[in-house]
């Protein structure tokens, strides 16, 4: 007699915990052939707001950690991804990828975490400056995190796309609320379990699954979100997001993964992606005896 499998309930990841959506709603996630894979949480505005509160609360602690420490935590994410590679690949396969494609995507995901882990204590050196002002002042400029960032992950690649967009955000000391791929959320949601076991402090990364058409406008309108990455927003909806984002002068960033490609070694991963979510702070102090 075959053993009955224990199925996994896919939930949200907010403030280091795995709640169901407070709305109690779900939406069916189906494989290419139409078979039901899971009933995912259809996250609500309230879930998003809870995630923003968690992200704001976590932000100063996260950016206050040493760059070395943040780098180690990102590297730890890579380690845990590696040890859970089979599970993540299995989810990608169930969502339609071939075994080879799934494994290639997982490898790229792991390498991307390692890549950004290494940047944690270097981008400020490459992009900060000491400025030779014409007067007796010491003057320097350092990058600082923009704050709380909303990321709309692309539909595909569902895992590499998510990771490629959130890794540069968090390595720079921001906290993030990410809306996962709507059609293929499984591996993305499982990443929450990776974060939870990788010493990522609660609230630094929050994952919300659901319908982008209802979630994205709320994320774009939220007055305590400082920047939004529209990479995974449908083309026809981008203009509306940009308009809404103006309400609190959000920084709006878009990565055209479809035409650049998610494997592009110079542009799909780059310190300039970190800078997209950094402010420049310039400090003046007089010099004298």
């Amino acid at each position: 007699m075959t053993r009955l499998a224990v199925r996994k309930t896919y939930k949200l990841y907010i403030n280091g915990e795995f709640p169901r959506t407070e709305s109690g709603r779900f939406y069916p996630v189906r494989a290419n052939g139409g078979d039901l894979l899971a009933n995912a949480c259809r996250g609500s505005r309230k879930d998003l707001r809870n995630a923003v509160v968690a992200a704001r609360k976590a932000q100063s602690g996260w950016s206050g950690k040493t760059a070395y420490n943040r780098g180690q935590i990102l590297y730890r994410i890579a380690e845990v991804c590696e040890s859970r590679a089979a599970e993540l690949a299995d989810e990608l396969r169930r969502q339609g990828a071939s075994a080879v494609e799934a494994r290639r995507e997982i490898d790229a995901v792991i390498d991307r975490w390692v890549y950004y882990a290494g940047w944690s204590d270097k981008y400020a050196q490459v992009f900060g400056s000491v400025n030779p002002v014409a007067g007796p002042y010491y003057n320097f400029t350092v990058p600082e995190p923009t704050g709380v960032v909303g990321v709309v992950a692309p539909e595909e690649p569902s895992l590499l796309g998510l990771v490629s967009r959130i890794a540069p955000v968090i390595v720079g000391g921001n906290t993030v609320i990410a809306i996962t791929s709507e059609s293929k959320p499984l591996a993305a949601i499982t990443m929450g379990e990776v974060f939870e076991t990788s010493d990522v402090p609660a609230g630094v990364i929050n994952l919300i699954s659901g319908l982008k058409s209802e979630l994205v406008p709320w994320l774009a309108a939220h007055m305590d979100v400082n920047a939004i990455d529209t990479t995974g927003v449908a083309d026809e909806a981008v203009a509306k997001v940009q308009q809404t984002a103006a309400e609190n002068v959000k920084r709006v960033v878009h990565f055209d993964g479809a035409s650049i490609g998610w494997d592009d070694a110079r542009r799909a991963q780059s310190p300039y992606a970190i800078l997209d979510f950094q402010e420049s702070k310039t400090v003046w102090h007089p010099m004298g005896m």
Binding site: T282, V283, W284, H285, P286
Partner: peptide, 29 residues
């Protein structure tokens, strides 16, 4: 949370010194 910090001075400007805001004070330097 501000783009320019003047410590023990104020309102100093220089072409070599980036200027610009955080939050609703704008973006870009």
């Amino acid at each position: 949370r501000a783009g320019v910090i003047w410590a023990n001075t104020y309102n100093k400007f220089d072409p070599a010194s980036p200027f610009g805001g955080y939050k609703e004070s704008g973006f870009g330097r």
